[in-house]
Computed example of a mutant assay.
Amino acid sequence: MDWWKKNMSRAVVKKERLARGQRRGEMFLKELIQCCDGKTNPIKFFSADQILKATERYFCKCNILERSQNVCECSRISELVFQGKWYSGTLDSRRMIIVKKMLGRSPNPPRDICSGPPKDIAISSMVSGHKNFMKLVGCCLEFEYPVLVYYGKEKQYSPIDLKVVVSWRRRMKIAEEVATALAYLHNAFPRPFVYRNMGFKNILLDEDGVAKLIDLSYCVSIPKGETFVKLTWAGRDYDYMDDNYLFNKVVSEKTDAFGFGIFMQKLLTGEERFDELCGWKNWRGKNKVPKWLSKSMGEGRMDEIIDPNMLKKMDEVSEEERCLMEVFLNLSERCIGLRGEVPNMVQVAKELKRSRKTASSSSGETRI
């Protein structure tokens, strides 16, 4: 009798998973058609059993371990706990994969806010071949929270920690790679995609230090013939949001340029120093946010605004490095609209690449 009940329970669970996967599959196809203009992208749909087998069933067991020990002993990349939870596994006993379990998504979000997993999967499949995005294999829609499957290696990816990434040249490299990823979203497709989700939490570094932009669920496309789109809801990452986006809910390519400009300033100053310099702590969480005023960050006081973690590793800031930092800061202020016309992300990526080449050639290095 117990055996019969156990098998019936398994059958019910499997039936529910299949029904859930079918419903979400329909949502995904609609999103794919809208995002990709009907073009197909190679993507594999995994069953729940395949995911459990690939992760040696730890995918489900991890939650119990984490609650009791605050450490996921079975997951090899348990430090990646933001924007969902991440697990390593092996596909067909050969290829290493990374499984991302998406958490905290509303099942029925407003269409222009965040379409959640369907949009993330659809756009990830479009950008998967670019070096600054993760290589998507497929997805599984049968679990309560959908999962995305990427190619990878154990311990390959890590979040950006400015206490670890202390080299100025490494930070310049990260900035260039993130700018390149945003430029790709803006220009590689018939309609530009605006990322509007900038932040350290959405960038991973692989074992070679290459930056990867993740979580594409907040992307919105600009209609053909238009330069912006108006939404019904802006978001809550105030420090990365320009006034037009925050107050008027207007999204354009300049939305990403602004967010990237703030990201650049945080790379230069460190997040804590950035908060102090901009007075962010004084009005965080308030409904009315003042315009950004970062002109005082430069003006010959570079030693005062550099991230202390980075400064500790530099015996002294050379005149050449100081000039590169000034150029970096100037470009960030152009991105946030404080110095003339806001550049597009292609221009930003080119200027950052040029600065990195200058730094590399002057030091006699071929790679930073």
Results as ranks from 00 to 15, higher is better:
T232H: 12
C219S: 01
F133E: 07
V327C: 01
K153Y: 11
C323F: 10
A257D: 06
S124I: 01
N7L: 09
V12C: 03
Q69M: 13
A19Y: 12
I160A: 03
L162F: 06
Q22I: 07
K288V: 15
F45M: 13
C114F: 00
K249Y: 08
K173A: 12
I64T: 11
K286M: 13
M297T: 05
S221V: 05
T366H: 08
R94E: 10
R367C: 14
G279Q: 09
S167E: 10
Q347C: 12
G337M: 00
K15E: 14
K212I: 05
K61S: 08
L182Q: 03
R169N: 13
N41I: 11
T40D: 13
N282E: 15
V164T: 11
V127D: 09
V346P: 02
P110Y: 05
W168H: 04
E144H: 12
E177N: 08
F189L: 12
G270L: 08
S47F: 00
P42G: 09
K85D: 04
L338I: 01
S9P: 00
E154K: 12
M241V: 08
E272I: 13
C219W: 01
N70P: 00
I174R: 09
M198H: 01
S361H: 11
P159F: 02
K14C: 13
R236T: 12
V13G: 00
V127I: 08
K230P: 02
L103C: 10
S252F: 04
K53T: 14
S78W: 13
K85M: 09
R356H: 03
S115T: 01
K14S: 15
Q347P: 00
K254E: 15
C323R: 13
E142Y: 10
L204I: 04
K288I: 15
L331M: 14
A54K: 02
K30E: 14
P190V: 00
T227S: 14
G270Q: 03
K6M: 05
R301H: 14
K135S: 06
V137F: 05
T227C: 08
D215P: 02
G129T: 12
S332C: 03
Y245S: 09
K173I: 02
M126Y: 06
E177A: 09
S362G: 11
L185I: 04
G225L: 05
D315F: 10
E176L: 07
M96S: 15
L80G: 05
I368R: 07
R301K: 15
D161R: 14
E73G: 10
V12H: 05
M8A: 11
W4T: 11
D215I: 02
R95V: 08
F143S: 12
M198D: 03
R20D: 00
A183L: 03
I97L: 04
T269M: 15
V250Y: 02
V317S: 08
K350Q: 14
K153G: 07
I123T: 06
H186I: 03
P146T: 07
F28W: 10
G300V: 05
L162K: 01
K353A: 13
M314P: 00
I64C: 08
L213K: 03
Y151W: 12
L311T: 09
L103Y: 03
S158I: 05
R191G: 02
S106K: 11
G261V: 09
R354K: 14
L29M: 09
K350Y: 10
S252V: 04
G84T: 06
S93A: 11
N244G: 05
R273M: 15
L329C: 07
F82N: 12
Y238R: 04
M310K: 00
A179K: 01
A122C: 07
C335A: 07
